[in-house]
Design a protein around this nucleic acid. Structure first.
Lengths: 225, 225
DNA sequence: GCATTTATTTGCGTATACATTAAAGAATGC
DNA sequence: GCATTCTTTAATGTATACGCAAATAAATGC
């Protein structure tokens, strides 16, 4: 792992990976500012790769470079959440449709099926972290099966942006039993080759998820995460 | 203008703007490779801002940085076109829906109405360039009215990626009479506050446009632009 | 000749230096 | 004390230097 680190990855790539991780985990908190030179020292490299990494993360919407004020970790407001979930709803529904059109074999749907199984287990064990991980796998795999690389990239980008909010709401939201049912219905539509149903069911699933999340955020006055 | 150039914009920003323009115009042709040092000399600056600009354009999907092979201007295949139009279809339809939900005043819809008028004039004058420009304005304004900044950014990004292909097909495709009718129908649904109709009509419009464009590309064996 | 190894070149990744300029702080006048 | 101007500081934007590794060319062995 340390080999991979030093040998195959450039410092810029390491910086992208590490900064992203630090942002998603909250180690670099939303709304905070950080000088390029500080980050450089933290990651043990010069400003050049830090700047390059920051530029990339800026175009992924995770931070903002403000001259003389440092790199600002972008908070996500509930309005931002709406924007992002609107996009996820459209693009994931498209992916579900396309996945259903592709008539995948049982083998090819194994990962998707596996993620559902994992979510079921997690709910029984009331292990929310495990559930969240499996949920993310489901959505990621769904989009992959949709077969559109650009959709994949956009969805990944949007998911990163709301990741902190998801972590926060995870322990406030109701146990995601309904969510699992939704996933199963979508999966069935895909495996039976019913594009319109897959699309529509997934769309409803996402709309409900958004309503619930935004509801929670507003109820708890969590306006920026 | 030269003031703006030198005073308010950084070299990196100028490089982004100029390189983008050179790519869209074809001055930097699809599929060609360019050393960082060449580009630096061309734009009269050092490699540093060129690299930063290239990084940004890479994440916008316009080029790819390949170590030792130079910066490669990405071609767009007909498969890419399908990916992109699929995304544009979903996100613009969403925007149309949201615009219709927003019950804009006539004033606020003036730009959109104006773009349609311009397209009509252009068709009468058989000025395809003018038509294309007005068409782009329509789509851009539609998305702006949708009120989702991220959708706006994604659509702009995708539009950039297919811009060369659009320029090529412009003089092969049939006169866009049907297209203008579509726009009018969408506009009416928006101004009358009918979200579902706006969404569905725009979706059909985009699906047809994609079918036509991809048809042309394949017919003429234009597999990468 | 052809394959394989060894030089050589060259473009990139990164560190570093430095000028610029915005922001913060000090000093001055009122 | 407050506003205003001047100083100082410090973070950025950019140029430049340089080592390294990859690609190419040359040389060697067979």
């Amino acid at each position: 792992m340390k080999d991979q680190d030093a040998k195959t990855l450039s410092n810029t790539q390491r910086a992208v990976r590490d900064l992203r991780q630090m942002i998603l985990s909250g180690e670099l908190a939303a709304g905070t500012d950080h000088l390029e030179s500080e980050l450089a020292e933290t990651l043990g490299m010069s400003r050049t790769p830090i700047r390059e990494a920051a530029l990339m993360l800026e175009s992924k919407g995770l931070l903002e470079m403000r001259p003389r004020k440092g790199v600002r970790i972008l908070p996500v407001s509930s309005d931002d959440m709406r924007e992002i979930y609107d996009i996820l709803t459209e693009l994931e529904s498209l992916a579900a449709q396309r996945a259903a059109e592709a008539s995948y074999s049982e083998d090819e749907l194994a990962v998707l099926a596996g993620s559902i199984a994992k979510m079921d287990q997690a709910i029984e064990a009331e292990d929310l972290e495990a559930w969240a991980e499996a949920d993310e796998l489901f959505h990621q795999e769904l989009v992959r099966l949709g077969g559109n690389k650009r959709v994949e990239a956009i969805v990944a980008m949007m998911s990163d942006q709301v990741s902190r909010a998801r972590a926060t709401t995870l322990f406030i939201r109701p146990l995601p039993v309904k969510s699992n049912e939704d996933h199963r219905v979508v999966f069935q539509a895909i495996s039976e080759g019913q594009p319109d149903i897959a699309r529509e069911r997934h769309r409803e699933h996402r709309l409900q998820a958004m309503a619930m999340l935004c509801g929670i955020l507003e109820k708890h006055r969590l306006n920026s995460l």
